[in-house]
Design a protein around this nucleic acid. Structure first.
Length: 972
RNA sequence: GCCGAAGUGGCGGAAUGGCAUACGCGCCGGUUUCAAAAACCGGUUCCCGCAAGGGAAUGGGGGUUCGAGUCCCCCCUUCGGCACCA
């Protein structure tokens, strides 16, 4: 190797070195070389789906950030667990198989090899011995095992936790009905259960689509073919039982508030009441859920979802044909199509009437598709005055709108039609007439307010018009007039409960998790179906249940009457499918698990990836997952940093938390949460250049001139905009190309230098040379380019301190550069801890600029600087370290100690401070930090510029922040 | 529509309530060179001015404060999430 900075040669040399020496192999408790005295740090990236396209510049953004932190923590003496693996089951490989016939396993292996090669180029300090793929039978054996744990559990509502199914108490009456009844009872309590659920069947593509693959018009995203809902038996996981814990236990986590909020919204806990309405002329009652029981007096009609079972029963003959037509149309429209059309409400009157339990009013019952069957009871009481949807519907169909909550401001009220809102004058009138304070107040509230609203008022306010007409007979305690919303709610609920008309209830938006896919490339379920519909789980000893080979990855189709009924492709593996046991013939479950399954627990397997006896060894799990807080108590979640894109803010993180909690309840893991600290990196976007017709142009066809981007061939000036990278916009940046041009260290540095990690930011190819230049400057500061020896900047006359003193502690006299180095070490360390890598890099740049200005740097200073740099740019740092240390030096820089700084050298005693007059800058002053205020003030007044600004007026007040600024306040 | 994040030079961005524009890109000038590139040194928010200097500016408007890019209220724009969840 010559003296010039040659990133490619350096990269190859050190990549091979790290591989050969297994530099980043991490020992587990009990392994040789494990040092129990060191604290642990588990730093994890969202592992990638190894797509055929290879690495994208978005991947190395997060991976570089975690790598810097991992390297820093290692140098700070931590045992660092930093790992990488592959979320390799999933759709694209299967689709590729459908198109080419190539086995998904082959595609997957190839893609993984590409990803691994590309990641290794970037110098990430992963322990590659822990690499895993969700598609390895050794791995998915345990995914299946966890499924069995879930299947073999039930949720004990009193203890609020999962327990083994064997501990489920069987009621005597169930027992008495025989074995089948017991089995059904048990099955209906399992955390994994079978249910009939509609799936998206696309006959033209011959496949079942995920909801995301279906357009709003109910067509397939690929090909625009029609998609039909077909009910299929599906595995469901009872995540709803964990709704409260999933919401409440977010509290303690060090996560972005936005993500916590998104999860809470997804869970959608809402408190309210279930209320039963009698139906006029029917024995059945209509049960509804409402979060605003205080508005019960404002209910002017009821609405049933089209799928509601009561619709058929209560519809009067006169309305029957209209209602039937409406319901059929609504049910056949996809859910997406139904919710997409938010513009106009639709609905039909059933002809039936319900009785409002609080005032005996007879109100019409409608059917409308704005009420969803899946939420609450699938029926509502409509309070148009205080619900926007009901308001809109009532306006459209001319239904009455009765205001029962007085809005605190007039913007809601139609002044032309409102007679009585001047209630304070009415109060005075009553008091003048001799009424007691309380009486007068109540009298005002009890008088009917004729308030006409111009829009729905949905916030809290004061209840009005809310008293039964005949107080005594119905609900004597139910006059809520004058009550504020929360108190009114509470009073209504308690009154309803006393009368047996309703109950306090909590509802959630979150649904049970649809856990099966009609796909080939996923984990097979360890489940057998018996001849009489009995479901049997495989024994743990029969795992893994491996995927059989099949030649055609399309689903199979059977016909039931005119209808096509799809079945998963695994049905083609006829030998695999049938299992004989105890003389009985069983069929294997043909569905496979969704891609989420494998990613739900990989962080646990990384703790102990080779364990053949358990999904993770107990000791390894405890060591890596239990994090102590500063106060000695344990953190609720074990992973010290989990970093990835915001696109997984809800589902992946929620599903993984759910599995983790089940495993915790069953005693398999030691923390209630998996990810103590979460961080989302921002998206990297890129400039796209379009011509006047809007057609994108690739960078290679553009001439970047000072006056703008010009199309090379046509000479047309192109319009630039920042967009998500995509093939069609021709703005995709390939990281491998950047590595070839500038080296891996430059790529890493640029990714971090672009801006704050969490911000979305544009990739600008013109900025990459900037960080490359910085690395070259570092190189030339230390290395003589012609000889390859140490540069002339490195002062030779200084004695070279012994190894153990040269880093890890300050040495040498505190000259200006030494002071700056201490500041740099402090600032970079702090910035790494708060993941502010962009400012850390600026700080290093400033140090190098200053060293050039000084034209000299001591060898020990150079060494300490290289240590700091090594977390960011490990290849160049290894090489420089070796060169500075001399040819005898043979070990990696990765386990050297992070240099220390002296707090005394970080603080300057002489500082320049601004002097302000009335808050405006008037001048600057160099002062000693310890100088008393009056000395500083006297010096400031002596400054001619300051004196001029003061204009001879007396200083009425002076604010001095020692060492920061002085502000002189004068009158006028 | 609702919820969340963000708006600072030509560009990416920096700034515990205390000198706005660090660092980098680009641009301008200088050194070096036969010349160019590279490298090194210096300059570069905008407006007026030859200059010294002066004025304005952190999306817009108001407020709190000795002092606001930062805190509070209203509005505008962009991005992200949810989308009839009663």
């Amino acid at each position: 190797m010559t003296g010039e900075y040659n990133p490619a040669a350096i990269r190859e040399k050190w990549q091979a070195y790290w591989d050969q020496h297994k530099t980043f192999r991490t020992a587990n408790p009990g392994d040789a070389g494990f040092d129990a005295a060191r604290p642990k740090c588990y730093i994890l990236d969202f592992f990638p789906y190894p797509s055929g396209a290879g690495l994208h510049v978005g991947h190395p953004e997060g991976y570089t950030a975690t790598d810097i932190l991992a390297r820093y923590k290692r140098m700070k003496g931590f045992n660092v667990l930093h790992t990488m693996g592959w979320d390799a089951f999933g759709l694209p490989a299967e689709q590729h198989a459908l198109e080419t016939g190539q086995h998904p396993a082959v595609t997957t292996t190839n893609n993984i090899n590409t990803f691994r090669r590309q990641l290794k180029m970037l110098g990430f300090s992963y322990d590659w011995d822990r690499e895993l793929s969700t598609t390895d039978a050794d791995y998915y054996k345990w995914t299946q095992w966890i499924f069995l744990q879930i299947y073999n559990s039930w949720f004990d509502d009193t203890q609020e936790k999962a327990r083994p199914i064997t501990e489920l108490p069987i009621p005597a009456d169930v027992k008495s009905r025989g074995e089948k009844a017991v089995r059904e009872f048990v099955d209906s309590h399992r955390l994994a259960y079978l249910a009939e659920v509609p799936v998206n069947w696309c006959p033209a593509l011959g496949t079942v689509l995920a909801n995301e693959e279906v357009t709003n018009e109910g067509k397939s995203e690929r090909g625009n073919h029609p998609v039909f809902k077909r009910p299929l038996k599906q595995w469901m996981l009872r995540i709803t039982k964990y709704a409260d814990r999933l919401a409440d236990e977010l509290e303690e986590l060090h996560w972005p508030e936005a993500v916590k909020l998104m999860q809470r919204n997804w869970i959608g806990r809402s408190e309210g009441a279930q209320v039963r309405f009698k139906l006029d002329g029917h024995a059945e009652e209509l049960e509804i859920f409402t979060t605003r029981p205080d508005t019960l007096f404002g209910a002017t009609y009821m609405v049933l979802a089209p799928e509601h079972p009561l619709v058929a029963k209560i519809t009067t003959p006169g309305q029957r044909s209209a209602v039937t037509a409406y319901c059929e149309a609504a049910i056949n429209r996809s859910e997406l199509a139904r919710t997409a059309e938010t513009k106009e409400k639709s609905g039909v009157f059933t002809g039936a009437y319900a009785i409002n339990p609080v005032n005996n009013e007879r109100i019409p019952v409608w059917v409308a598709d704005y009420v969803l069957i899946g939420y609450g009871t699938g029926a509502i009481m409509a309070v148009p005055a205080h619900d926007e949807r009901d308001f809109e519907f009532a306006m459209q169909f001319g239904l009455p709108i009765r205001c029962v909550v007085l809005p605190p401001d007039r913007s809601y009220i139609d002044a032309n039609h409102t007679q009585q809102v001047g209630w304070s004058s009415r109060y005075d009138e009553l008091r003048d007439a001799g009424a007691e304070y309380k009486e007068a107040k109540q009298q005002v509230y009890d008088e009917m307010f004729d308030v006409r609203l111009i829009k729905a008022f949905c916030d809290e306010g004061m209840a009005i018009n809310s008293r039964p007409a005949t107080l005594d007979r119905l609900l004597p305690s139910l006059n809520i007039n004058g009550k504020k919303t929360p108190a009114a709610k509470d009073q209504v609920i308690r009154a309803l409960e006393r009368r047996g008309l309703g109950t306090r209830t909590i509802n959630y938006k979150i649904r049970d998790w649809l856990f099966s896919r009609q796909r080939y490339w996923g984990e097979p379920f360890p489940i057998l179906h018996g001849p009489d519909g009995e479901v049997v789980a495989l024994d743990e000893s029969e795992l893994p249940l491996t995927l059989p080979e099949i030649s055609d990855y399309h689903p199979t189709v059977t016909h039931e009457g005119n209808e096509e009924v799809p079945a998963p492709p695994l049905g083609r593996a006829t030998e695999w499918v049938t299992v004989t046991r105890g003389g009985k013939s069983y069929r294997r479950e043909l569905n496979t698990m969704p891609q989420w399954a494998g990613s739900c627990w990989y962080y646990l397997r990384f703790c102990d990836p080779k364990n053949a006896m358990r999904f993770v060894g107990k000791e390894a799990e405890r060591y890596w997952m239990l994090s102590k807080k500063k106060d000695g108590t344990y953190h609720v979640g074990g992973i010290d940093l989990y970093l990835g894109g915001a696109e997984h803010a809800v589902l992946h993180l929620l599903y993984a938390r759910f599995w983790h909690k089940v495993l915790y309840d069953l005693g398999h893991v030691s923390t209630i949460e998996p990810f103590g600290r979460l961080f989302n990196q921002g998206m990297i976007r890129a400039f796209a250049y379009r011509d006047s017709r809007g057609i994108p142009t690739g960078y290679e066809d553009i001439d970047f001139r000072e006056d703008g981007a010009i199309h090379k061939a046509t000479g047309e000036k192109l319009h630039a905009s920042v967009e998500k990278m995509s093939k069609s916009l021709k703005n995709v940046i390939n990281p491998e190309q950047v590595v070839n041009e500038y080296g891996a260290d430059s790529l890493r540095l640029y990714e971090m230098f672009m801006g704050p990690l969490e911000a979305s930011k544009p990739w600008n190819p013109r900025d990459v040379p900037g960080v490359f230049r910085f690395l070259q400057r570092v190189w030339r500061l230390l290395v003589d380019e012609t000889t390859g020896g140490l540069s002339s900047y490195i002062s030779a006359n200084e004695p070279h301190p012994p190894v153990e003193e040269s880093h890890g502690r300050p040495s040498g006299p505190p000259d200006a550069l030494e002071r700056l180095l201490h500041k740099t070490i402090k600032k970079v360390g702090e910035d790494i801890e708060r993941l502010a890598f962009n400012t850390a890099i600026s700080t290093m740049m400033e140090f190098v600029n200053e060293a050039y200005r000084a034209k000299s740097i001591r060898k020990d200073q150079a060494e300490r600087f290289v240590l700091v740099l090594s977390a960011f740019a490990p290849f160049i740092a290894e090489e420089l370290w070796q060169r500075v240390r001399g040819p005898a030096w043979k070990t990696s820089i990765a386990y050297e100690q992070w240099p220390a700084f002296d707090p005394k050298l970080v603080e300057d005693d002489e500082v320049e401070i601004p002097v302000q007059v009335n808050g405006k800058l008037a001048g600057r002053l160099v002062v000693s930090k310890s100088a008393p205020q009056d000395a500083v003030q006297t010096a400031a007044m002596g400054d001619p510029k300051v004196a001029e600004k003061l204009g001879g007026k007396p200083v009425v007040k002076a604010i001095y922040v020692p060492g920061r600024m002085l502000n002189l306040v004068v009158k006028g």
